[in-house]
Design a protein around this nucleic acid. Sequence first.
DNA 1: TTAGGGTTAG
Length: 566
Amino acid sequence: MYVQGIINPFKGKIGVISNFENVKCLDDAVTLFDQMVRTKPLPSVVDFSKLFKTLLNMKHYSAVVSLFREMQTLGITINGFILSIVINSYCLMHRVDYAFSVLPIYLKNGIPFNVVTFNTLMRGIFAENKVKDAVELFKKLVREKICEPNEFTYATVMNGLSKTGHTDKTLSLLRLMEQGSTKPDIFIYSIVVDALCKDRKFDAAIDLLNEMKQKGVPPNIVTYSSLIDGLCKSGQWEKVKTFFSEMVNLNIYPDVRTFNIVIDGLYKEGKVEDAEEVMKHMAGKGVEPDIITYNTIMDGYCLCGQRDRARRVFDSMIDKNIEPDIISYNNILINGYCKEKKVDEAMQLFREISHKGSKPNTVTYNTILQGLFEVGRIGDANFFYAEMLSAGHILDLYTLCTLLDGYFKYRLVEEAMSLFNKLERKMEHTSIELYNVVINGLCKNGKLDKAHEIFEKLSLIGVLPNVRTYTIMINGFCLEGLLDEAKDMLRKMEDNGCLPDDVTYNVLVQGFLRSSKISETATFMTEMAGRGFSFNATTAELLVKAISEKPSVLDMIPELHSRIMK
DNA sequence: TTAGGGTTAG
Protein backbone atom coordinates (compact mmCIF):
# COMPACT_ATOMS: atom_id res chain seq x y z
CA MET A 1 0.00 0.00 0.00
CA TYR A 2 1.66 3.18 -1.12
CA VAL A 3 -1.06 5.72 -0.66
CA GLN A 4 -2.47 6.64 2.64
CA GLY A 5 -5.43 8.97 2.93
CA ILE A 6 -5.26 11.15 6.00
CA ILE A 7 -7.36 13.95 7.34
CA ASN A 8 -5.64 17.26 7.36
CA PRO A 9 -7.33 18.98 10.30
CA PHE A 10 -6.24 22.43 9.22
CA LYS A 11 -7.58 22.37 5.71
CA GLY A 12 -10.36 19.98 6.54
CA LYS A 13 -9.90 17.89 3.45
CA ILE A 14 -8.21 14.66 2.56
CA GLY A 15 -4.64 14.90 1.46
CA VAL A 16 -2.40 12.19 0.14
CA ILE A 17 0.86 11.33 1.75
CA SER A 18 2.89 9.22 -0.58
CA ASN A 19 5.95 7.39 0.41
CA PHE A 20 7.94 7.53 -2.79
CA GLU A 21 10.87 5.76 -1.22
CA ASN A 22 8.80 2.60 -1.40
CA VAL A 23 8.67 2.84 -5.17
CA LYS A 24 11.36 0.41 -6.18
CA CYS A 25 10.55 -0.39 -9.78
CA LEU A 26 8.49 0.59 -12.77
CA ASP A 27 5.54 -1.55 -11.68
CA ASP A 28 5.42 0.14 -8.26
CA ALA A 29 5.40 3.54 -9.91
CA VAL A 30 2.62 2.68 -12.33
CA THR A 31 0.53 1.09 -9.57
CA LEU A 32 0.96 4.19 -7.46
CA PHE A 33 0.06 6.41 -10.39
CA ASP A 34 -3.12 4.42 -11.01
CA GLN A 35 -4.05 4.73 -7.34
CA MET A 36 -3.31 8.43 -7.36
CA VAL A 37 -5.49 9.25 -10.35
CA ARG A 38 -8.40 7.37 -8.74
CA THR A 39 -8.05 9.15 -5.38
CA LYS A 40 -10.65 11.80 -4.61
CA PRO A 41 -9.85 14.57 -4.25
CA LEU A 42 -6.84 14.22 -6.50
CA PRO A 43 -3.41 14.33 -4.90
CA SER A 44 -1.57 17.59 -5.38
CA VAL A 45 0.51 18.30 -8.42
CA VAL A 46 3.52 18.18 -6.06
CA ASP A 47 2.83 14.49 -5.44
CA PHE A 48 2.63 13.83 -9.15
CA SER A 49 5.92 15.62 -9.77
CA LYS A 50 7.59 13.61 -7.00
CA LEU A 51 6.44 10.43 -8.67
CA PHE A 52 7.74 11.63 -12.03
CA LYS A 53 11.07 12.53 -10.49
CA THR A 54 11.28 9.04 -8.97
CA LEU A 55 10.71 7.54 -12.42
CA LEU A 56 13.32 9.82 -13.93
CA ASN A 57 15.84 8.73 -11.30
CA MET A 58 15.11 5.12 -12.20
CA LYS A 59 15.81 6.02 -15.84
CA HIS A 60 12.29 5.05 -16.96
CA TYR A 61 12.13 7.98 -19.34
CA SER A 62 9.48 6.65 -21.68
CA ALA A 63 7.30 5.85 -18.66
CA VAL A 64 7.50 9.50 -17.64
CA VAL A 65 6.28 10.46 -21.07
CA SER A 66 3.40 8.01 -21.17
CA LEU A 67 2.18 8.79 -17.65
CA PHE A 68 2.38 12.47 -18.50
CA ARG A 69 0.20 11.88 -21.57
CA GLU A 70 -2.29 10.01 -19.41
CA MET A 71 -2.43 12.95 -17.00
CA GLN A 72 -3.19 15.24 -19.88
CA THR A 73 -5.90 12.94 -21.23
CA LEU A 74 -7.48 12.82 -17.80
CA GLY A 75 -7.34 16.59 -17.60
CA ILE A 76 -5.23 16.60 -14.43
CA THR A 77 -3.55 19.89 -13.64
CA ILE A 78 0.14 20.03 -14.50
CA ASN A 79 2.80 22.59 -13.69
CA GLY A 80 6.22 23.73 -14.77
CA PHE A 81 8.00 21.21 -12.56
CA ILE A 82 6.31 18.31 -14.31
CA LEU A 83 6.97 19.82 -17.72
CA SER A 84 10.68 20.18 -17.05
CA ILE A 85 10.84 16.56 -15.93
CA VAL A 86 9.19 15.58 -19.20
CA ILE A 87 11.64 17.73 -21.18
CA ASN A 88 14.52 16.17 -19.27
CA SER A 89 13.21 12.68 -20.00
CA TYR A 90 13.13 13.39 -23.73
CA CYS A 91 16.63 14.87 -23.53
CA LEU A 92 17.94 11.82 -21.72
CA MET A 93 16.37 9.65 -24.43
CA HIS A 94 18.39 11.72 -26.90
CA ARG A 95 15.20 13.12 -28.40
CA VAL A 96 15.73 16.82 -28.02
CA ASP A 97 13.32 17.34 -30.93
CA TYR A 98 10.49 15.92 -28.83
CA ALA A 99 11.74 17.95 -25.88
CA PHE A 100 11.16 21.11 -27.90
CA SER A 101 7.66 19.93 -28.75
CA VAL A 102 6.80 20.26 -25.05
CA LEU A 103 7.20 24.05 -25.26
CA PRO A 104 3.71 24.68 -26.74
CA ILE A 105 2.21 22.87 -23.71
CA TYR A 106 3.58 25.66 -21.52
CA LEU A 107 1.80 28.25 -23.66
CA LYS A 108 -1.47 26.30 -23.78
CA ASN A 109 -1.54 26.01 -20.00
CA GLY A 110 -0.36 29.52 -19.31
CA ILE A 111 2.80 28.25 -17.62
CA PRO A 112 5.73 30.63 -18.14
CA PHE A 113 9.06 29.31 -19.38
CA ASN A 114 11.83 29.70 -16.90
CA VAL A 115 15.56 29.31 -16.75
CA VAL A 116 15.21 25.61 -15.82
CA THR A 117 13.31 24.94 -19.05
CA PHE A 118 16.17 26.29 -21.10
CA ASN A 119 18.96 24.82 -19.00
CA THR A 120 17.43 21.39 -19.47
CA LEU A 121 16.99 21.90 -23.20
CA MET A 122 20.56 23.11 -23.63
CA ARG A 123 21.91 20.08 -21.84
CA GLY A 124 19.87 17.91 -24.22
CA ILE A 125 21.20 19.72 -27.28
CA PHE A 126 24.76 19.25 -26.10
CA ALA A 127 24.05 15.57 -25.42
CA GLU A 128 23.33 15.21 -29.14
CA ASN A 129 26.61 16.92 -29.94
CA LYS A 130 24.87 19.90 -31.52
CA VAL A 131 27.31 22.37 -30.06
CA LYS A 132 26.43 25.21 -32.40
CA ASP A 133 22.70 24.91 -31.70
CA ALA A 134 23.28 24.92 -27.96
CA VAL A 135 25.56 27.94 -28.08
CA GLU A 136 23.08 29.71 -30.37
CA LEU A 137 20.27 29.11 -27.87
CA PHE A 138 22.45 30.39 -25.03
CA LYS A 139 23.31 33.56 -26.95
CA LYS A 140 19.66 34.06 -27.89
CA LEU A 141 18.56 33.84 -24.25
CA VAL A 142 21.08 36.49 -23.26
CA ARG A 143 20.61 38.73 -26.31
CA GLU A 144 16.84 38.74 -26.29
CA LYS A 145 16.68 38.75 -22.48
CA ILE A 146 14.40 35.69 -22.53
CA CYS A 147 15.73 34.66 -19.18
CA GLU A 148 18.62 35.56 -16.94
CA PRO A 149 21.31 32.86 -17.12
CA ASN A 150 22.22 31.54 -13.69
CA GLU A 151 25.02 29.31 -12.35
CA PHE A 152 23.24 26.25 -13.74
CA THR A 153 23.08 27.80 -17.21
CA TYR A 154 26.77 28.56 -17.23
CA ALA A 155 27.62 25.15 -15.84
CA THR A 156 25.57 23.47 -18.59
CA VAL A 157 27.13 25.49 -21.37
CA MET A 158 30.64 25.24 -20.03
CA ASN A 159 30.40 21.51 -19.46
CA GLY A 160 28.95 21.04 -22.94
CA LEU A 161 31.75 23.09 -24.47
CA SER A 162 34.54 21.42 -22.57
CA LYS A 163 33.29 17.93 -23.40
CA THR A 164 33.39 18.82 -27.11
CA GLY A 165 36.96 20.02 -26.97
CA HIS A 166 36.38 23.75 -26.53
CA THR A 167 38.40 24.19 -23.36
CA ASP A 168 39.45 27.68 -24.43
CA LYS A 169 35.82 28.82 -24.70
CA THR A 170 35.10 27.28 -21.31
CA LEU A 171 37.96 29.25 -19.86
CA SER A 172 36.80 32.52 -21.45
CA LEU A 173 33.32 31.98 -20.04
CA LEU A 174 34.87 31.54 -16.60
CA ARG A 175 36.67 34.87 -16.92
CA LEU A 176 33.47 36.48 -18.23
CA MET A 177 31.55 35.19 -15.22
CA GLU A 178 34.16 36.61 -12.87
CA GLN A 179 33.49 40.07 -14.35
CA GLY A 180 29.71 39.71 -14.25
CA SER A 181 27.12 39.44 -11.52
CA THR A 182 26.75 35.65 -11.57
CA LYS A 183 29.99 34.62 -9.90
CA PRO A 184 31.45 31.17 -10.63
CA ASP A 185 30.72 28.63 -7.90
CA ILE A 186 32.32 25.32 -6.99
CA PHE A 187 30.49 23.52 -9.84
CA ILE A 188 31.79 25.98 -12.41
CA TYR A 189 35.36 25.81 -11.15
CA SER A 190 35.26 22.02 -11.03
CA ILE A 191 34.10 21.90 -14.66
CA VAL A 192 37.01 24.10 -15.72
CA VAL A 193 39.55 22.14 -13.66
CA ASP A 194 38.27 18.93 -15.26
CA ALA A 195 38.37 20.49 -18.72
CA LEU A 196 41.97 21.60 -18.25
CA CYS A 197 42.97 18.15 -17.01
CA LYS A 198 41.30 16.42 -19.95
CA ASP A 199 43.30 18.80 -22.14
CA ARG A 200 46.44 17.76 -20.25
CA LYS A 201 46.99 21.33 -19.06
CA PHE A 202 47.85 20.26 -15.54
CA ASP A 203 49.81 23.35 -14.55
CA ALA A 204 46.87 25.53 -15.53
CA ALA A 205 44.52 23.22 -13.61
CA ILE A 206 46.71 23.43 -10.49
CA ASP A 207 46.94 27.23 -10.85
CA LEU A 208 43.16 27.39 -11.02
CA LEU A 209 42.89 25.21 -7.91
CA ASN A 210 45.04 27.72 -6.05
CA GLU A 211 43.03 30.59 -7.49
CA MET A 212 39.88 28.96 -6.11
CA LYS A 213 41.35 28.90 -2.63
CA GLN A 214 42.26 32.59 -2.86
CA LYS A 215 38.83 33.54 -4.11
CA GLY A 216 37.07 31.79 -1.28
CA VAL A 217 35.66 28.93 -3.35
CA PRO A 218 37.71 26.09 -1.91
CA PRO A 219 38.08 22.96 -4.06
CA ASN A 220 36.03 20.00 -2.87
CA ILE A 221 36.12 16.24 -3.33
CA VAL A 222 35.00 16.50 -6.97
CA THR A 223 37.60 19.11 -7.88
CA TYR A 224 40.36 17.03 -6.29
CA SER A 225 39.08 13.82 -7.87
CA SER A 226 39.12 15.43 -11.32
CA LEU A 227 42.65 16.66 -10.86
CA ILE A 228 43.80 13.31 -9.49
CA ASP A 229 42.18 11.55 -12.45
CA GLY A 230 44.11 13.75 -14.87
CA LEU A 231 47.36 13.21 -13.01
CA CYS A 232 46.81 9.43 -12.88
CA LYS A 233 46.07 9.29 -16.59
CA SER A 234 49.28 11.14 -17.34
CA GLY A 235 51.32 9.00 -14.97
CA GLN A 236 52.32 11.84 -12.62
CA TRP A 237 52.24 9.67 -9.54
CA GLU A 238 54.24 12.01 -7.32
CA LYS A 239 51.68 14.75 -7.90
CA VAL A 240 48.87 12.27 -7.32
CA LYS A 241 50.34 11.60 -3.88
CA THR A 242 50.79 15.32 -3.20
CA PHE A 243 47.18 16.19 -3.93
CA PHE A 244 45.86 13.10 -2.22
CA SER A 245 47.65 14.21 0.98
CA GLU A 246 46.64 17.81 0.44
CA MET A 247 42.96 16.94 0.34
CA VAL A 248 43.19 14.76 3.41
CA ASN A 249 45.01 17.56 5.26
CA LEU A 250 42.10 19.82 4.37
CA ASN A 251 39.73 17.23 5.87
CA ILE A 252 38.38 16.33 2.45
CA TYR A 253 38.33 12.55 2.52
CA PRO A 254 38.69 10.47 -0.64
CA ASP A 255 35.48 8.61 -1.38
CA VAL A 256 34.86 5.47 -3.39
CA ARG A 257 35.03 7.48 -6.62
CA THR A 258 38.43 8.95 -5.79
CA PHE A 259 39.72 5.47 -4.97
CA ASN A 260 38.24 4.05 -8.16
CA ILE A 261 40.01 6.74 -10.16
CA VAL A 262 43.38 5.94 -8.58
CA ILE A 263 42.92 2.17 -8.86
CA ASP A 264 41.95 2.54 -12.51
CA GLY A 265 44.98 4.73 -13.19
CA LEU A 266 47.36 2.27 -11.56
CA TYR A 267 45.99 -0.74 -13.44
CA LYS A 268 46.19 1.14 -16.74
CA GLU A 269 49.90 1.59 -16.09
CA GLY A 270 50.28 -2.07 -15.22
CA LYS A 271 50.99 -1.25 -11.55
CA VAL A 272 48.96 -4.18 -10.22
CA GLU A 273 50.67 -4.33 -6.83
CA ASP A 274 50.23 -0.61 -6.21
CA ALA A 275 46.57 -0.92 -7.15
CA GLU A 276 46.16 -3.74 -4.65
CA GLU A 277 47.92 -1.63 -2.04
CA VAL A 278 45.47 1.22 -2.62
CA MET A 279 42.56 -1.22 -2.30
CA LYS A 280 43.88 -2.30 1.10
CA HIS A 281 44.19 1.36 2.11
CA MET A 282 40.62 1.91 0.96
CA ALA A 283 39.37 -0.99 3.06
CA GLY A 284 41.37 0.31 6.02
CA LYS A 285 39.60 3.65 5.73
CA GLY A 286 36.25 1.90 5.72
CA VAL A 287 35.40 2.92 2.17
CA GLU A 288 33.23 0.17 0.69
CA PRO A 289 33.98 -0.92 -2.87
CA ASP A 290 31.05 -0.45 -5.23
CA ILE A 291 30.14 -2.06 -8.54
CA ILE A 292 32.47 0.37 -10.34
CA THR A 293 35.36 -0.70 -8.11
CA TYR A 294 34.76 -4.33 -9.10
CA ASN A 295 34.44 -3.41 -12.75
CA THR A 296 37.65 -1.37 -12.56
CA ILE A 297 39.52 -4.27 -10.97
CA MET A 298 38.26 -6.72 -13.59
CA ASP A 299 39.11 -4.32 -16.38
CA GLY A 300 42.54 -3.84 -14.80
CA TYR A 301 43.31 -7.55 -14.67
CA CYS A 302 42.16 -7.96 -18.26
CA LEU A 303 44.47 -5.14 -19.34
CA CYS A 304 47.39 -6.88 -17.65
CA GLY A 305 46.50 -10.06 -19.47
CA GLN A 306 45.23 -11.70 -16.29
CA ARG A 307 41.82 -12.51 -17.64
CA ASP A 308 41.43 -15.60 -15.46
CA ARG A 309 41.95 -13.53 -12.36
CA ALA A 310 39.32 -11.09 -13.60
CA ARG A 311 36.83 -13.98 -13.89
CA ARG A 312 37.57 -14.80 -10.33
CA VAL A 313 36.74 -11.35 -9.27
CA PHE A 314 33.59 -11.77 -11.34
CA ASP A 315 32.60 -14.82 -9.34
CA SER A 316 33.45 -13.22 -6.00
CA MET A 317 31.20 -10.35 -6.92
CA ILE A 318 28.31 -12.73 -7.33
CA ASP A 319 29.24 -14.39 -4.01
CA LYS A 320 29.00 -11.00 -2.34
CA ASN A 321 25.55 -10.49 -3.86
CA ILE A 322 26.75 -7.64 -6.01
CA GLU A 323 24.84 -8.06 -9.22
CA PRO A 324 27.11 -7.71 -12.29
CA ASP A 325 25.88 -4.89 -14.49
CA ILE A 326 26.20 -4.36 -18.20
CA ILE A 327 29.63 -2.85 -17.68
CA SER A 328 30.84 -5.98 -15.91
CA TYR A 329 29.76 -7.96 -18.94
CA ASN A 330 31.19 -5.43 -21.36
CA ASN A 331 34.52 -5.06 -19.64
CA ILE A 332 35.41 -8.56 -18.86
CA LEU A 333 33.39 -11.05 -20.76
CA ILE A 334 32.52 -9.46 -24.09
CA ASN A 335 35.67 -7.40 -24.32
CA GLY A 336 37.70 -10.42 -23.23
CA TYR A 337 36.24 -12.62 -25.94
CA CYS A 338 36.76 -9.91 -28.53
CA LYS A 339 40.39 -9.38 -27.52
CA GLU A 340 40.94 -13.13 -27.83
CA LYS A 341 39.32 -12.84 -31.25
CA LYS A 342 36.53 -15.19 -30.14
CA VAL A 343 33.85 -13.00 -31.65
CA ASP A 344 31.26 -15.77 -31.95
CA GLU A 345 31.43 -16.41 -28.21
CA ALA A 346 31.07 -12.68 -27.63
CA MET A 347 28.01 -12.60 -29.89
CA GLN A 348 26.46 -15.54 -28.10
CA LEU A 349 26.96 -13.89 -24.74
CA PHE A 350 25.49 -10.72 -26.19
CA ARG A 351 22.31 -12.64 -27.02
CA GLU A 352 22.26 -14.17 -23.54
CA ILE A 353 22.71 -10.92 -21.61
CA SER A 354 19.17 -9.71 -22.16
CA HIS A 355 17.82 -12.96 -20.75
CA LYS A 356 19.84 -12.38 -17.60
CA GLY A 357 18.14 -9.05 -17.00
CA SER A 358 20.91 -6.74 -18.21
CA LYS A 359 20.45 -4.68 -21.31
CA PRO A 360 23.19 -4.38 -23.93
CA ASN A 361 24.18 -0.74 -24.27
CA THR A 362 26.04 1.25 -26.87
CA VAL A 363 29.38 0.12 -25.44
CA THR A 364 28.35 -3.52 -25.82
CA TYR A 365 27.52 -2.94 -29.47
CA ASN A 366 30.69 -0.93 -30.02
CA THR A 367 32.89 -3.61 -28.48
CA ILE A 368 31.44 -6.32 -30.68
CA LEU A 369 31.54 -4.08 -33.74
CA GLN A 370 35.20 -3.42 -33.10
CA GLY A 371 35.79 -7.14 -32.52
CA LEU A 372 34.20 -7.99 -35.86
CA PHE A 373 36.34 -5.46 -37.70
CA GLU A 374 39.39 -6.70 -35.85
CA VAL A 375 39.00 -10.18 -37.36
CA GLY A 376 38.04 -8.79 -40.74
CA ARG A 377 34.38 -9.83 -40.71
CA ILE A 378 33.19 -6.71 -42.51
CA GLY A 379 29.89 -8.21 -43.67
CA ASP A 380 28.96 -9.24 -40.13
CA ALA A 381 30.03 -5.84 -38.86
CA ASN A 382 27.68 -4.13 -41.32
CA PHE A 383 24.91 -6.52 -40.36
CA PHE A 384 25.49 -5.85 -36.69
CA TYR A 385 25.52 -2.10 -37.28
CA ALA A 386 22.18 -2.39 -39.07
CA GLU A 387 20.82 -4.34 -36.10
CA MET A 388 22.03 -1.62 -33.79
CA LEU A 389 20.21 1.00 -35.85
CA SER A 390 16.99 -0.95 -36.07
CA ALA A 391 17.03 -1.63 -32.31
CA GLY A 392 16.93 2.15 -31.93
CA HIS A 393 20.29 2.27 -30.20
CA ILE A 394 22.03 5.56 -29.70
CA LEU A 395 25.12 5.75 -31.85
CA ASP A 396 27.89 7.49 -30.08
CA LEU A 397 31.10 8.94 -31.33
CA TYR A 398 32.88 5.69 -30.62
CA THR A 399 30.46 3.75 -32.84
CA LEU A 400 31.09 6.10 -35.73
CA CYS A 401 34.84 6.12 -35.21
CA THR A 402 34.88 2.32 -35.04
CA LEU A 403 32.91 2.06 -38.28
CA LEU A 404 34.98 4.64 -40.14
CA ASP A 405 38.24 3.28 -38.82
CA GLY A 406 37.17 -0.25 -39.77
CA TYR A 407 36.28 0.77 -43.31
CA PHE A 408 39.54 2.64 -43.79
CA LYS A 409 41.56 -0.22 -42.36
CA TYR A 410 40.19 -2.56 -45.03
CA ARG A 411 40.68 0.08 -47.71
CA LEU A 412 36.94 0.63 -48.11
CA VAL A 413 37.53 4.33 -48.65
CA GLU A 414 34.29 4.91 -50.54
CA GLU A 415 32.14 3.33 -47.81
CA ALA A 416 33.96 5.35 -45.19
CA MET A 417 33.62 8.62 -47.06
CA SER A 418 29.97 8.08 -47.88
CA LEU A 419 29.19 7.46 -44.21
CA PHE A 420 31.29 10.46 -43.22
CA ASN A 421 29.58 12.74 -45.76
CA LYS A 422 26.20 11.62 -44.48
CA LEU A 423 27.25 12.43 -40.93
CA GLU A 424 28.74 15.74 -41.89
CA ARG A 425 25.56 16.81 -43.66
CA LYS A 426 23.60 16.13 -40.53
CA MET A 427 26.21 18.16 -38.62
CA GLU A 428 25.31 16.34 -35.46
CA HIS A 429 28.63 14.82 -34.69
CA THR A 430 31.23 17.47 -35.10
CA SER A 431 34.01 16.21 -32.96
CA ILE A 432 37.71 16.34 -33.57
CA GLU A 433 38.03 12.63 -32.79
CA LEU A 434 35.79 11.76 -35.72
CA TYR A 435 37.80 14.02 -38.02
CA ASN A 436 41.00 12.45 -36.75
CA VAL A 437 39.79 9.02 -37.86
CA VAL A 438 38.85 10.34 -41.30
CA ILE A 439 42.05 12.32 -41.84
CA ASN A 440 44.11 9.37 -40.64
CA GLY A 441 42.18 6.94 -42.85
CA LEU A 442 42.70 9.12 -45.90
CA CYS A 443 46.42 9.53 -45.21
CA LYS A 444 46.90 5.80 -44.76
CA ASN A 445 45.05 5.13 -48.01
CA GLY A 446 47.26 7.43 -50.07
CA LYS A 447 44.78 10.30 -50.19
CA LEU A 448 46.89 12.96 -48.56
CA ASP A 449 45.39 15.80 -50.62
CA LYS A 450 41.88 15.03 -49.49
CA ALA A 451 43.09 14.63 -45.92
CA HIS A 452 44.83 17.99 -46.10
CA GLU A 453 41.71 19.58 -47.53
CA ILE A 454 39.62 18.36 -44.59
CA PHE A 455 42.31 19.43 -42.16
CA GLU A 456 42.29 22.95 -43.59
CA LYS A 457 38.50 23.04 -43.35
CA LEU A 458 38.48 22.32 -39.61
CA SER A 459 38.99 25.90 -38.48
CA LEU A 460 36.19 27.07 -40.80
CA ILE A 461 33.69 24.72 -39.19
CA GLY A 462 34.85 25.55 -35.69
CA VAL A 463 36.47 22.21 -34.85
CA LEU A 464 39.85 22.62 -33.21
CA PRO A 465 42.64 20.27 -34.29
CA ASN A 466 44.31 18.62 -31.32
CA VAL A 467 47.73 17.07 -30.89
CA ARG A 468 46.54 13.86 -32.54
CA THR A 469 45.21 15.71 -35.58
CA TYR A 470 48.53 17.42 -36.14
CA THR A 471 50.42 14.18 -35.55
CA ILE A 472 48.24 12.39 -38.10
CA MET A 473 48.97 15.09 -40.68
CA ILE A 474 52.68 14.99 -39.89
CA ASN A 475 52.62 11.23 -40.33
CA GLY A 476 50.71 11.68 -43.60
CA PHE A 477 53.39 14.01 -44.94
CA CYS A 478 56.19 11.72 -43.74
CA LEU A 479 54.61 8.71 -45.47
CA GLU A 480 54.72 10.64 -48.75
CA GLY A 481 58.28 11.78 -48.09
CA LEU A 482 57.14 15.40 -47.75
CA LEU A 483 59.44 16.17 -44.85
CA ASP A 484 59.43 19.96 -45.20
CA GLU A 485 55.65 19.96 -45.00
CA ALA A 486 55.89 17.73 -41.93
CA LYS A 487 58.25 20.22 -40.29
CA ASP A 488 55.96 23.13 -41.23
CA MET A 489 53.08 21.34 -39.55
CA LEU A 490 55.15 20.93 -36.38
CA ARG A 491 55.78 24.68 -36.35
CA LYS A 492 52.14 25.39 -37.10
CA MET A 493 50.90 23.31 -34.19
CA GLU A 494 53.24 25.06 -31.78
CA ASP A 495 52.15 28.46 -33.13
CA ASN A 496 48.56 27.42 -32.48
CA GLY A 497 49.40 26.61 -28.88
CA CYS A 498 49.19 22.85 -29.35
CA LEU A 499 52.28 21.17 -27.95
CA PRO A 500 53.67 18.09 -29.72
CA ASP A 501 53.75 14.95 -27.59
CA ASP A 502 55.87 11.79 -27.63
CA VAL A 503 53.85 10.32 -30.51
CA THR A 504 54.41 13.42 -32.64
CA TYR A 505 58.16 13.15 -32.16
CA ASN A 506 58.25 9.42 -32.79
CA VAL A 507 56.36 9.94 -36.04
CA LEU A 508 58.76 12.70 -37.11
CA VAL A 509 61.86 10.72 -36.23
CA GLN A 510 60.52 7.72 -38.12
CA GLY A 511 59.82 9.88 -41.17
CA PHE A 512 63.32 11.34 -41.23
CA LEU A 513 64.96 7.99 -40.52
CA ARG A 514 63.09 6.34 -43.39
CA SER A 515 64.46 9.03 -45.70
CA SER A 516 67.93 8.59 -44.18
CA LYS A 517 68.07 12.23 -43.07
CA ILE A 518 70.28 11.44 -40.14
CA SER A 519 71.34 14.90 -39.02
CA GLU A 520 67.75 16.11 -38.82
CA THR A 521 66.80 12.90 -37.05
CA ALA A 522 69.49 13.76 -34.51
CA THR A 523 68.03 17.24 -34.00
CA PHE A 524 64.57 15.86 -33.27
CA MET A 525 65.99 13.24 -30.94
CA THR A 526 67.74 15.91 -28.91
CA GLU A 527 64.48 17.85 -28.72
CA MET A 528 62.71 14.68 -27.65
CA ALA A 529 65.19 14.05 -24.88
CA GLY A 530 64.85 17.65 -23.74
CA ARG A 531 61.12 17.21 -23.39
CA GLY A 532 61.46 13.89 -21.61
CA PHE A 533 59.94 11.77 -24.41
CA SER A 534 61.18 8.30 -25.27
CA PHE A 535 61.22 6.15 -28.41
CA ASN A 536 58.46 3.71 -29.17
CA ALA A 537 58.99 0.21 -30.55
CA THR A 538 58.75 1.25 -34.22
CA THR A 539 61.30 4.03 -33.80
CA ALA A 540 63.66 1.69 -31.99
CA GLU A 541 63.30 -0.89 -34.75
CA LEU A 542 64.04 1.66 -37.45
CA LEU A 543 67.05 2.88 -35.53
CA VAL A 544 68.46 -0.60 -35.19
CA LYS A 545 67.93 -1.13 -38.90
CA ALA A 546 69.63 2.17 -39.77
CA ILE A 547 72.60 1.37 -37.55
CA SER A 548 73.01 -2.15 -38.90
CA GLU A 549 72.97 -0.80 -42.44
CA LYS A 550 75.32 2.05 -41.63
CA PRO A 551 77.17 1.86 -38.27
CA SER A 552 78.36 5.47 -38.57
CA VAL A 553 74.77 6.54 -37.81
CA LEU A 554 75.57 5.86 -34.19
CA ASP A 555 78.26 8.54 -34.13
CA MET A 556 76.04 11.01 -35.97
CA ILE A 557 73.45 10.88 -33.25
CA PRO A 558 75.07 11.85 -29.96
CA GLU A 559 71.77 11.60 -28.17
CA LEU A 560 71.43 7.98 -29.19
CA HIS A 561 74.97 7.26 -28.16
CA SER A 562 74.45 8.46 -24.61
CA ARG A 563 71.19 6.54 -24.35
CA ILE A 564 72.73 3.31 -25.45
CA MET A 565 75.51 3.89 -22.92
CA LYS A 566 72.87 4.24 -20.22
C1' DT B 1 7.70 22.33 0.16
C1' DT B 2 8.01 19.05 -6.46
C1' DA B 3 12.35 20.80 -11.87
C1' DG B 4 18.04 22.18 -14.15
C1' DG B 5 24.93 21.95 -13.14
C1' DG B 6 30.78 19.01 -11.84
C1' DT B 7 34.70 13.46 -10.97
C1' DT B 8 35.38 6.86 -12.37
C1' DA B 9 34.09 1.99 -17.53
C1' DG B 10 34.81 0.68 -24.36
